[in-house]
Design a protein around this nucleic acid. Structure first.
Lengths: 147, 147
DNA sequence: TATTGTTATACTCTATAACTATA
DNA sequence: TATAGTTATAGAGTATAACAATA
């Protein structure tokens, strides 16, 4: 089934395919793991706190390209599960630092999270060179969202 | 600003970063283009109809990893904008084929769509080799969502 | 007056469930 | 009985607006 002679793939058409492909993969991941205890944003926040240490709502919101109110809702969820906890800011009474708890560290690191399982299995089907390409693209995607 | 010596990036941690990065980029794209007339899913459907010709709701839903009811809502939106139209299926009275209209083709192809503009500007900041990596990764992301 | 965070509300996107019509 | 599509409803995720407290 040879493809019809498409005019050479332009950057423009690639950009369209990128958003389509990303949207589809995220839908798929959410569907495959809808019974999971944490959603993708919550996992992102845990990963970030694990790397950077305690952060404020505003900083977390900025780093995830999200509004502070939205981040607040995510943090409330994580807090109710006992995965993060509040710490007063040492010098600014307005700010609140959110830090991972021991349970948060454990949940984040344990292999049992279904979200990873499904995607890991899919990634395992890639050729080594393809896997390298995919991994190399991750920081680029990250940079795009920050530019 | 050398990076701290992170323990070698495992496939597992890369998979986490991939979903985080994709979620963040899609949020950013949506924010930057929230005044746009079409959402990402609608643009995907137009692109697919442009490539494949007329398709049914069910086939479109399958190809986008989405439920038929959800695809139905997307198609109603496109239909009300006059971008797609219904055609009866030649042999099966239950099925309905959706085809692009001339206006749909025009809207899809015109350069003015803000969604593309913002992302194109961001992509233009990548080095040529990085752009190649990103483009090479697109079919891989697509394949993951279909596996 | 500007910033941090909270509360209340609404919107977008997609899923689930129940139904109709055709096969 | 199975499949395609529709209608109605609900849920997740995130935004906007209005507010309180601190700087």
């Amino acid at each position: 089934m040879a493809k019809p002679p498409r005019p050479k793939a332009t950057v423009e058409s690639s950009v369209n395919e990128l958003t389509t492909a990303m949207g589809q993969l995220l839908r798929r991941v959410r569907l495959e793991t809808s019974s999971d205890e944490l959603n993708l944003s919550q996992l992102s926040v845990l990963a970030r706190l694990d790397m950077h240490g305690a952060m404020t709502t505003a900083d977390l919101a900025r780093s995830e390209s999200m509004k502070p109110q939205s981040m607040g809702a995510i943090l409330v969820g994580l807090e109710q599960e006992g995965l993060v906890e509040r710490e007063p800011h040492p010098s600014d009474g307005r700010q609140i630092l959110f830090a991972m708890t021991a349970k948060g560290t454990e949940v984040r690191r344990k292999r049992g999270i279904a979200k990873r399982e499904w995607l890991l299995a899919a990634v395992a089907k890639l050729e080594p060179a393809e896997l390298r390409t995919l991994i190399d693209a991750i920081p680029l995607i990250k940079r795009l969202s920050e530019s």
